[in-house]
């Protein structure tokens, strides 16, 4: 039995080791995140076109102007609907596909590649491909709907302000479900067969087995998927910018694209910085409690 003293010394060295280990990531973080964010905040208090030598100090004016713009609130709302969609959409579809495929299907490896493939495509290419999918009169989606007699459901996918966000979400679903699928599939594979067998022997239906046995055990996978989804929803930029530029007429704009347009489309760097600061704060308010909650649940799960 090692003495109490011995263990204490061990844990003291552990403390040292931890500090040394953490110094590298913390330094990287301070240099590459904290410093740029501080300089962005500083810029947000100025009016600056991005080129002239002297930014003009304007205090909180940029923040006040934004707070009075319906365009700004529209983008905030879009970010929130993306958050809801990304938490639910790709996650549940990925889970469904993973659960179906986990039953020892024929051609499993083919399915696995097909579902994952879209996830590996760069955003510019996804946008180009989906501009055709969504071509409103002769695109693939409209053509298919017409050929199965549902032509009346065809829409002006990317051109109708009330439809465009759903269309973008559709392409996002195609693009990112592969990730959720992959993680859940791995998670399901990780569940010991005995658990499932035991439940079966007790007469549970596959449906019950899934919800009562498998799903609770998928918690670690779920954390990763939901965490990524929340982060993606706030950072969302590429796919919107490449497909619609935030249009038609701001309809599909999110904060990151609005910031970009404000900065480089209109030369208002200070205001664009204020948008980023708002974005950070909003994301912080929405996501941080959530991440915090997830971190806590993990610790509780471990404690059990």
């Amino acid at each position: 039995m090692p003495s109490f003293q011995f263990m204490r010394r061990k844990f003291q060295t552990a403390g040292m080791t931890h500090a040394i280990f953490l110094s590298l990531p913390v330094t990287l973080f301070a240099v590459f995140y904290v410093y740029p964010i501080i300089s962005t905040f500083n810029l947000s208090l100025h009016s600056w076109d991005g080129f002239s030598p002297t930014p003009k100090y304007v205090g909180l004016q940029n923040y006040i102007v934004l707070a009075h713009q319906s365009r700004f609130y529209h983008a905030v709302l879009n970010n929130i609907s993306w958050l809801v969609f990304l938490l639910l959409g790709p996650t549940s579809l990925g889970l469904l596909l993973a659960a179906l495929l986990d039953r020892g299907m024929k051609g499993q490896s083919v399915f696995r590649v097909v579902f994952f493939l879209p996830f590996t495509i760069p955003a510019v290419a996804v946008a180009a491909i989906w501009r055709w999918m969504y071509e409103p009169t002769s695109g693939l989606l409209t053509t298919i709907l017409q050929s199965i007699g549902l032509g009346s459901l065809a829409q002006n996918w990317l051109g109708d302000p009330s439809i465009v966000n759903f269309a973008l979400m559709g392409s996002m679903l195609w693009w990112t479900t592969g990730f959720a699928f992959l993680v859940f599939f791995a998670g399901l594979r990780n569940i010991p067969v005995e658990y499932i067998e035991a439940a079966r022997i007790e007469g549970a239906t596959p449906w019950q087995v899934f919800w009562k046995v498998s799903f609770p055990l998928l918690w670690p996978s779920t954390i990763v998927v939901l965490g990524m989804a929340a982060v993606d929803a706030m950072r969302l930029f590429d796919i919107v910018w490449a497909m619609t530029n935030g249009g038609p007429a701001y309809a599909s704009e999110v904060l990151a694209t609005q910031m970009y347009d404000t900065a480089f489309g209109r030369f208002e760097m200070g205001r664009a910085s204020a948008i980023s600061v708002y974005l950070l704060v909003i994301a912080g308010l929405i996501i941080m409690p959530y991440i915090h909650q997830l971190a806590k649940r993990v610790q509780e799960a471990e404690a059990e």
Binding site: Y134, E135, P136, T137, S138, N156, L158, G159, D160, P248
Partner: peptide, 20 residues
């Protein structure tokens, strides 16, 4: 044209080429 706002300019040019 119907649905014009959902097209890129090259897609509309394609419509002209294809006689639509």
């Amino acid at each position: 044209a119907k649905n014009w706002s959902g097209k890129t300019w090259t897609q509309t040019a394609d419509d002209v080429v294809n006689g639509n």
